[in-house]
């Protein structure tokens, strides 16, 4: 018998405007999930810069994950820039590495949820 597991809601789709980011807390997880709307589509990324193993938080302030021009996700630890569609680091400390994509599920009522449970990184 399969068991339906309801994964936690992250945010409302309408709360993420084009070119904006939200840092969403996931219960029991050490790292947040970044939800970004880029060219109309929602993308989910683990708030964990790959510069150091295990990742470190990237915002400079709550929900602030972009560079000044709004063109790249940015780690505000050392200024590394990431492609908002692929998560690839294009400049900075983690050149050649990429962000961890988080699959999202958009429900008919506009709720954005995790599509599957996050692996690892639980609260210590």
């Amino acid at each position: 018998m399969s068991v339906e597991v309801t994964l936690p809601p992250l945010c409302r789709a309408k709360d993420v405007a084009e070119g904006q980011t939200l840092g969403c807390t996931v219960p029991g997880q050490r790292r947040k999930v970044i939800v970004m709307r880029h060219r109309g589509a929602l993308h989910g990324w683990l708030d964990a810069c790959p510069h150091y193993a295990g990742g470190t938080p990237m915002a400079w302030k709550k929900n602030e994950y972009l560079n000044g021009a709004g063109t790249h996700l940015t780690c505000h630890a050392h200024g590394a820039l990431f492609d908002p569609e692929t998560g690839e680091c294009v400049a900075g400390a983690c050149l050649g590495k990429r962000l961890t994509r988080v699959e999202l599920r958009l429900e008919t009522d506009g709720t954005v949820r995790l599509a599957k449970a996050l692996e690892g990184g639980k609260t210590e």
Partner: peptide, 9 residues
């Protein structure tokens, strides 16, 4: 240490 929009801690 805190992150910052100046690309450094």
């Amino acid at each position: 240490y805190f992150n910052s929009p100046l690309g450094t801690h």
